[in-house]
């Protein structure tokens, strides 16, 4: 059971990072289109996305208890 739990946690954490970056990119892309400021906003928000992703990964690692 243990290795599977580790695998699922790894899967979980990878998804956290990817989705946060995707959200950052999407917000930056929209802001760039709105302000016609390509590529600044997408660059800035990609960075934010990466930080938010790591933050979520950290949170996820500490919030998911092992399955009883």
């Amino acid at each position: 059971m243990q290795p599977h739990s580790g695998m699922s946690l790894a899967l979980r954490l990878g998804v956290e990072l990817v989705t946060a970056v995707l959200i950052g990119v999407a917000i930056g892309y929209m802001l760039d289109r709105f302000f016609a400021s390509t590529p600044w906003m997408i660059a800035l928000f990609s960075l934010f996305g990466v930080i938010a992703g790591f933050r979520n990964m950290y949170r996820a690692a500490s919030s998911i208890p092992p399955m009883p």
């Binding site: 899967l11 998804v15 990817v18 989705t19 946060a20 959200i23 996305g49 938010a52 933050r55």
Partner: peptide, 25 residues
């Protein structure tokens, strides 16, 4: 100004990671 966008992104990422994780698995 740095932390609020990060918090918002991490909040918005919740439903996406939730759905993508299940779907991808």
């Amino acid at each position: 100004p740095l932390m609020v966008p990060i918090e918002i992104i991490s909040y918005l990422a919740r439903p996406v990671s939730l759905s993508v994780r299940l779907f991808a698995n």
